[in-house]
Write a protein that binds this DNA or RNA. Structure first.
Length: 570
DNA sequence: GCCGTTTTCGGCCCGACTGTTTTCAGTCG
C-alpha cells in the first residue's frame, strides 16, 4: 500500500509546485516519479532493503531521500511545507479540466477563491471578469467545463478498460464503414487497465465527412468540437470522451505513435531524436524540413535507430534502451493465443451449452477451450455435484467426437474450502484435464495458507484470480502474494490472468512480480456467456504489458504440449 | 528533481487550440 500512498503524495506535491509556478522540470520530475511508483511491481518498503531506490530510473537522490523519510516517519516534510499554505479546495479544482494553475492562482490571489463554490460565485457576480486575462469567452468555457465535470465522469476518474471495450470496438467498426485504418490510440491501445478518454485515429483525405459521420453516431451524447481533422464527443455510455483524429496516410504512423504514448515514452524518443539532429512530431520525423519517416510506426522507430516497440511496452520502463540495443524481448502476440482456459457453461452459472460455446470459440479461431464450471459448495452459482461433473465429462467426450477443429478440455474451477481442502476428492479431480483452484468464500480467512495447501494437491494446475479483487466493488483477499508465488514455483502451479472485465487478476503489475519467480501463466476469460469470450484480448494485453513471451503463457501451447504440461509431464 | 555515446552542469518534447492579445499566455494531449 505504501507505493500508492507515495504516488499520491508526489502527485499532490507536483500540483502544489505547479500552483506556485515553480520550475516546471522539477514538477515534471515529481509527476514522473509518481507514475513510476504507482506502477512499480514491488513494495518500496521491501525493495529498499535490498537495493538502493536510486536504482529505479526516474528516482534520484532527492526523491529517494523523501521516500526513505516516508517509510521511516510516515510523512514527507517537504510535502507538508509546500502544501500547508494552499487551501484544499485548490487541489480539488485542479482536477477539473481547463482550470489550470495560472487561472486558479490569479483567482485565489486577487479574489480569495479557495473552493469551487467560491469560483462559481465570482464567475456569476462578474468579479472574475474584471481580472486581467479573464475574458468573457474564457469564463464561459470555464463554466461549461465545470458543468460537464459535475454532470459526467469527465476528468473525475479513469474507466476500467473492460467497461468501455465493447462500445469502442463498435464505434471503430462503424467508422470503418466510411474510412479506413480506424485505430484506437492512447492507453486503450497500450491496454492499460484503466483509460481516461479514448483516442481514435483514421486515415482519410476527406476529414470532414469522417468527423461528420462520427458525431452523428447513435452512441454520442454531446459534441464538444468538430472540424476537418478532429472531433471530440461525449458518449452516452459512461459519459466518456472520445477524440477522433483524421490524418493523411503519409502521417499515419507518426500520428499513431504520437497519440499512443505514453507521454514519458514519447518524451524519451524525442530526446533521442534531438541528439541525432532529428525532430519527431505527430506529422513525421524530420531532418530540417525534410521528412524522413511518418507513414508507419516501424519507420518512425527505425529512423532514430530503434526496433519497433509494441504499444503495450511503451511505458518508459526500460523498453527504449532495449530497442536501441536490439534486445527487446519477443512478447506474446495476439495471434499466438490458441484458446480460452476458463469458461463457464450452463452446467453451473453460465448461459450457454458446451456445444454453443465450442462452436462460437471455433468461429473465433480458438483451437481449444476449457470448460471450468464451479464445484459443488458454490451453491449460489450452481456448483456441480460429482455426478453432474462426471455426466458433463461424458458430454464433452461426445462433443469432441462430433465437432472437429476445436478441442474441449474437461475442467473445473474447484473451490478451496475454508479449511484449505478442495471441494472435490482426488478421485474426481483425476478425471479432469484441467483443474483451476479458486477461493470464492471466506476472503478474510487464512487465504495465504489455504492457497499454499491447495497448491500441494497434485491435481491442481492453476490458481484462479489470485488476488480476488473486483475492480468495481471489492479490494481482494488478504493474501501474501510473495509466499504464493514461491509455493507456485515449488509445486509447478500456473497462475491465472483472469480477464473477466471486472477482475483483471493478476494485473500487469502483479504478473511482472510473479514473472520474476519464473512462473507460467494461464489466460482465462471466466466467461459466463459467449459474448464475454472476446475479453481474452484483455488477458493477452496484461501479458504483453508484463513483457511475457509466448513460452510464459500456456494458452499459446499447441494442444499436445498443453496437455502434457497439465498432466505434469515434462 | 533527474540525468549523461558530446555533459557531474545545463539542459529537460512538441504542436494545436483558444483566447486575450498587438506578440503572447494558458491549457491540453
Amino acid at each position: 500500500m505504501t507505493n500508492q500512498e507515495l504516488a499520491e503524495i508526489f502527485n499532490l506535491l507536483a500540483d502544489a509546485l505547479e500552483f506556485k509556478a515553480e520550475n516546471p522540470f522539477k514538477i515534471q520530475a515529481y509527476r514522473k516519479a509518481s507514475r513510476i511508483i504507482k506502477d512499480f511491481s514491488f513494495d518500496l518498503k521491501e525493495f529498499c532493503k535490498e537495493k538502493p531506490l536510486t536504482a529505479i530510473p526516474g528516482i534520484g537522490e532527492g526523491i529517494a531521500k523523501k521516500i526513505k523519510e516516508y517509510i521511516e516517519t510516515g510523512k514527507i516534510s517537504k510535502f507538508d511545507e509546500e502544501t500547508k499554505d494552499i487551501p484544499k479546495g485548490i487541489f480539488e479544482m485542479m482536477k477539473i479540466p481547463y482550470l489550470g494553475p495560472k487561472t486558479l492562482k490569479r483567482a485565489y490571489e486577487k479574489l480569495g477563491v479557495d473552493s469551487l463554490d467560491q469560483l462559481k460565485k465570482v464567475m456569476d457576480d462578474g468579479s472574475l471578469a474584471l481580472l486581467q486575462g479573464m475574458g468573457a469567452k474564457k469564463i464561459e468555457r470555464m463554466k461549461e467545463t465545470i458543468q460537464l465535470f459535475e454532470t459526467s465522469e469527465i476528468g473525475k476518474k479513469r474507466f476500467v478498460i473492460g467497461d468501455v471495450y465493447p462500445v469502442i470496438e463498435e464505434i471503430i467498426s462503424r467508422l470503418n464503414e466510411v474510412t479506413r485504418n480506424v485505430t484506437p490510440c492512447g492507453s486503450y491501445r497500450r491496454m492499460k487497465e484503466t483509460v481516461g478518454d479514448i483516442d481514435l485515429l483514421a486515415i482519410s483525405d476527406k476529414g470532414e465527412e469522417v468527423t461528420g459521420f462520427f458525431i452523428k453516431l447513435p452512441f454520442v451524447r454531446n459534441v464538444i468540437s468538430v472540424g476537418s481533422t478532429k472531433a471530440t464527443v461525449i458518449l452516452k455510455t459512461h459519459g466518456i470522451q472520445v477524440d477522433l483524429r483524421v490524418v493523411k496516410a503519409d502521417s499515419f504512423g507518426a500520428c499513431l505513435q504520437y497519440f499512443t504514448g505514453s507521454k514519458a515514452h514519447n518524451i524519451k524518443l524525442r530526446t533521442i531524436a534531438k541528439v541525432k539532429g532529428l525532430k519527431i512530431s505527430e506529422y513525421g520525423v524530420f531532418r530540417g524540413k525534410k521528412k524522413v519517416a511518418g507513414s508507419t510506426e516501424k519507420e518512425v522507430y527505425k529512423s532514430i535507430g530503434l526496433d519497433y516497440i509494441p504499444p503495450e511496452m511503451r511505458e518508459d520502463n526500460g523498453e527504449i534502451k532495449l530497442a536501441m540495443e536490439h534486445r527487446l524481448p519477443r512478447i506474446v502476440e495476439y495471434k499466438d493465443f490458441l484458446g480460452d482456459l476458463h469458461i463457464h457453461s450452463k452446467y453451473s452459472d453460465g448461459a450457454e451449452s458446451i456445444v454453443e460455446l465450442a462452436k462460437t470459440a471455433k468461429a473465433m479461431g480458438f483451437k481449444y477451450i476449457a470448460i471450468c464450471d464451479h464445484s459443488k459448495s458454490v451453491t449460489y452459482a450452481g456448483g456441480l455435484t460429482e455426478d453432474m461433473l462426471l455426466k458433463k465429462n461424458e458430454e464433452i467426450d461426445t462433443i469432441n467426437e462430433e465437432i472437429k477443429g476445436i478441442s474441449v478440455l474437461k475442467g473445473a474451477e474447484v473451490d478451496i474450502l475454508s479449511n484449505g481442502e478442495l471441494d472435490y476428492k482426488d478421485s474426481i479431480l483425476e478425471t479432469l484435464d484441467i483443474v483451476i483452484a479458486a477461493i470464492h468464500q471466506g476472503f478474510r480467512k487464512n487465504v495465504t495458507e489455504r492457497f499454499l495447501q491447495a497448491m500441494e494437491n497434485p491435481f491442481v494446475n492453476i490458481l484462479a484470480h489470485p488476488t480476488g479483487r473486483l475492480i468495481s466493488k471489492r479490494k481482494g483477499y488478504d493474501v501474501n502474494l510473495e509466499k504464493v508465488f514461491e509455493k507456485a514455483k515449488d509445486e509447478g502451479i500456473i497462475l491465472e490472468i483472469n480477464s473477466y472485465f471486472d477482475r483483471l487478476d493478476l494485473d500487469d503489475t502483479n504478473v511482472r512480480r510473479a514473472k520474476s519467480f519464473n512462473l507460467l501463466f494461464s489466460i482465462g476469460t471466466d466467461a459466463h456467456n459467449v459474448g464475454m469470450l472476446k475479453y481474452w484480448r484483455l488477458g493477452v494485453g496484461i501479458a504483453r504489458r508484463a513483457w511475457l513471451t509466448k513460452e510464459n503463457v500456456i494458452n499459446c501451447y499447441p494442444l499436445p504440449k498443453l496437455k502434457k504440461l497439465l498432466r505434469g509431464e515434462k
